[in-house]
């Protein structure tokens, strides 16, 4: 048991949320990109989070029950949204099909904005958790001062 594992858990979440934020930025930036190196329009990307145990040698040695229950978060996978591209009528577009429709990325801007607010708030919650752990650890040093 130590405060540093608490801080490590929170910072793993900060990393995960930042990864998610990067993906959201990428989705928003490419909301109108019809060409990609793989061919076809840009596909929306999303992160898959997984709770993983904090395996420190300290925890293992102590066989600490509380320590075993503590989970950090990891980005396990980055998936591409396989839903159909949005078809937009624009015959003058160079990527238009014979019927005059252009395959646009399957990115819903409103959805991305909502996800972004979610990621920001979760990030802030984790920053608060780090601050709490830090202030508690510093408070301990005040004993018998």
């Amino acid at each position: 048991m130590d405060f540093f594992s608490s801080m490590n858990v929170s910072s793993s979440a900060l990393t995960a949320e930042r990864t998610r934020m990067n993906l959201i930025s990428s989705n928003l930036a490419n909301a109108n990109a019809t060409r990609t190196p793989e061919g076809g329009p840009y596909k929306r990307k999303d992160a898959v989070f997984a709770a993983t145990p904090v395996e420190t040698r300290f925890n293992r040695a102590l066989d600490n029950a509380t320590g075993r229950e503590v989970r950090q978060v990891e980005v396990m996978q980055i998936i591409e949204d396989q839903s159909q591209p949005r078809m937009q009528f624009d015959p003058s577009h160079p990527d238009a099909n014979p019927q005059g429709y252009v395959a646009m990325p399957n990115v819903n801007v409103v959805e991305e904005m909502a996800d972004m607010i979610n990621a920001t708030r979760t990030y802030e919650a984790n920053v608060t958790a780090v601050q709490a752990a830090k202030s508690m650890a510093l408070k301990t040093l005040e004993i018998s001062k």
């Binding site: 048991m1 858990v9 989070f49 709770a51 503590v70 979760t122 919650a125 958790a129």
Partner: peptide, 28 residues
């Protein structure tokens, strides 16, 4: 103090996994 510090670890774990699918929060 010891138990509160342990509880802090669990709460951090819950906050960190606020977006993880199928995660169930724990408390001491």
């Amino acid at each position: 103090i010891d138990l509160r510090a342990r509880n802090q670890n669990l709460i951090s774990s819950n906050v960190a996994n606020a977006e993880t699918p199928n995660y169930v929060p724990k408390s001491l």
